[in-house]
Design a protein around this nucleic acid. Structure first.
Lengths: 242, 242
DNA sequence: CGAGCATCGGACGTCCTACATCCGATAACC
DNA sequence: GGTTATCGGATGTAGGACGTCCGATGCTCG
């Protein structure tokens, strides 16, 4: 509703104008009741409709794309996007790596938040977990154990394990957020070096978490997750100490 | 180090190239060991160094700005930015409002995540809370009560209350995330209408949460927070039901 | 007659030029 | 010496030109 027309003299800062432009585009989507997957007007049409040059408009569109609001397909068009948190992951990864040059504060904060989410929600997840989902979790554990026995890294299996733990909650936002934290942690982990972690021991830790979940023991599961994160936190601290 | 020169034929998709460009910029910051507040090269210099046009470069820069990686000041220059989660808030707000047109799923998921964070971390926060911080929380409660008695809305006081609850943890990422969730919820709240909420009752609810925190009763505090969020969740469900 | 292929048009991607706007700093002026 | 005017540099905005990609239309060939 703020797009009553072309503003002859925008007296606000350029930054505010760009934000307003982004808001206008989002408002336009909401007003036209477009759903995920629906096409947006072309760049030319939008630039005319919003009274800005194509260049300025594109800068806003790229931001919206990065924010996961729209999806841009070369040579085809623009569409309302399904959730996409990749960009957020990039931003947070950057922050985490930047912080590692100091005390690793932000990296540790990231672990704190992830810990709060996982150990706080594991109980609810256990409540609604099906036997199939439980089996898929064990599958991930087995995979980790096999890879650990072979002396190989098990990044993907580890990620899968944590994802499946909270799949029962059916909360996409949560899954996305945890995926972001995971990605960031992986990048940071690479940064601080291979570490001297014991693969077999780590796999066993996940096995015990699974056991608690399978037994429906919410308290133990939460506690074990906490301990798991304590280890991660310790490793980051050690790396920064160097 | 990937910027060994101009690539004559970029065979990858445009989207991948833009992402690579963003990564290159972030790598450049990390390689040069720039800290928050340090200046970046000018647009012209960067466009030459990275082998892309100023326009293409600017699109990436705008994304990085939105992601809170860099700060752009008109007519002055670009700098490594302190944390900024405003853009994330905008993206999530959009998603939330979009979801309200359906079942309000994403909006409810947002509340779930916020609930997990708040009720999960309140215990830790109580552990390290100082008397000054406790007093500042009561201050926020009083403000809410006064505004409620006057029949006025207390958006800011409510936000302050929740922020101060977790200030003791000294976790900027958490504060930022909760700030995001708060902003999104406020926008959604406006969307679903004024509602028939009882201001006095809501203020009383916050007073009871404060009481539990002051008493060091972690279990009660967590439980009260849960109930608080149940109310929010119910209100969203009602609004969608219309 | 149908499958495969070439062409076409539209839409996004990139680059360039030009000018506007803003900011800090220098230098002139009172 | 303090204040103000000007300047230079940097970002902001606009428009145009051309490249690249994609889907679709229509043609050709089996």
């Amino acid at each position: 509703m703020t797009t009553s027309g072309v503003v002859p003299q925008a007296r606000f800062s350029a930054q505010a104008r760009l934000r307003a432009l982004q808001s206008d585009i989002m408002e336009l989507i909401l007003e036209r009741e477009l759903e995920a997957g629906d096409p947006l007007p072309t760049e030319s049409e939008l630039s005319v409709a919003l009274g800005v040059g194509r260049n300025t408009l594109r800068e806003s569109l790229k931001v919206l794309q990065a924010l996961g609001v729209i999806e841009i397909r070369h040579g085809f068009g623009m569409f309302v996007a399904p959730s996409n948190f990749d960009a957020l992951a990039d931003g947070l990864t950057f922050r985490g790596r930047l912080s590692l040059r100091h005390q690793g504060l932000e990296a540790l904060q990231l672990v704190d938040v992830r810990q709060a989410l996982e150990s706080g929600l594991i109980g609810s997840s256990i409540d609604v977990m099906t036997t199939e989902q439980l089996a898929s979790i064990e599958e991930a554990v087995k995979q980790m154990e096999e890879l650990a026995a072979a002396g190989e890294n098990f990044v993907a299996a580890d990620a899968e394990f944590h994802r499946r733990l909270f799949e029962p909650l059916n909360n996409e936002l949560l899954i996305n957020l945890m995926g972001v934290f995971w990605k960031v942690y992986r990048k940071i982990h690479v940064e601080i070096g291979p570490g001297n972690e014991d693969l077999v021991k780590t796999a066993a830790m996940h096995r015990s978490i699974y056991a608690a979940v399978a037994a429906g023991d919410k308290v133990s599961a939460s506690e074990l997750l906490n301990r798991h994160f304590d280890g991660i936190r310790r490793r980051i601290s050690e790396a920064v100490g160097d």
